[in-house]
Design a binder for these strands. Sequence first.
DNA 1: TAATATTGGTAAGAGAGGCTGACTAAGTCA
DNA 2: TGACTTAGTCAGCCTCTCTTACCAATATTA
Lengths: 140, 140
Amino acid sequence: MNLGLLCFIAYRAMEVEVMKAVAEAGFDDLTVAQGRLAARIGPEGTRLTELAEQAQVTKQTAGFLVDQLERAGYVTRTPDPADARARLVRMAPRGEAVVAVARQAEARVEAEWTRHLGKRGTAQLRAALTSLREITDPYA
Amino acid sequence: MNLGLLCFIAYRAMEVEVMKAVAEAGFDDLTVAQGRLAARIGPEGTRLTELAEQAQVTKQTAGFLVDQLERAGYVTRTPDPADARARLVRMAPRGEAVVAVARQAEARVEAEWTRHLGKRGTAQLRAALTSLREITDPYA
DNA sequence: TAATATTGGTAAGAGAGGCTGACTAAGTCA
DNA sequence: TGACTTAGTCAGCCTCTCTTACCAATATTA
């Protein structure tokens, strides 16, 4: 079977589990697209344009998603001291809370995968995928 | 880094390459969603409901996509001899042609990955992902 | 230093893709 | 026969993403 499709199956399984955990923790208004963007927010805040680039969407799309995240209280926008045009998107407390839940769910799923593949097999999988980023990820 | 996200990066790289090859071959009206659905059509044709299940979308969505594929000449709908309610979605010649292009692009990308990871590494990657399907793919 | 180009971001509108709910027609089974 | 299930359609809605067009601030350069 096609390697790309195999990656997709694993990826989707992870995504479904994480979103389920997040929803069960009470954050039932968060969508996948919002989560994907929010996952790129750095500890000191990140500019919209940078988020758009990394998530590989247009800045309009990124702006649309950040609007929603802001309205739902997950992030805030603060002026960027380094550039008056720009604003930094930062995690709000509610955002930090959901990140914690997501990280935990990720760890749980990875542990499950490790039980299935073995420690060695999982390490190899991670190494192979990480190495692949060098030729597949423009933002590696 | 999160294993799920690593899978996503590789998957998207493959998808982008395949869609680019397909578009360059003149099939520039095919979308990703249509392709994902069409990839599930079996040699003898497949029922709409079955396609929907396997692609994990509702049958309404599947019907919508098959409408488009039919209008563009990629597939045909024929009555299912086994059940007068059902119809079989089958590949049309134009559909077969695009499948051939897609398969070729997939093979090319996999070859590139193999050059990067080595034969052994690629085989391990495939083995790990295939094994993972046992716990991540409800339609394995 | 003034004109020009670039960069960060917003606004408006359109289209794709997905969903739910309600429905018809055909098959299944008690 | 009547109740239930299954294959598929119809209608309406929401989310995400794009393109085109624009404004404001910064950088560059003549």
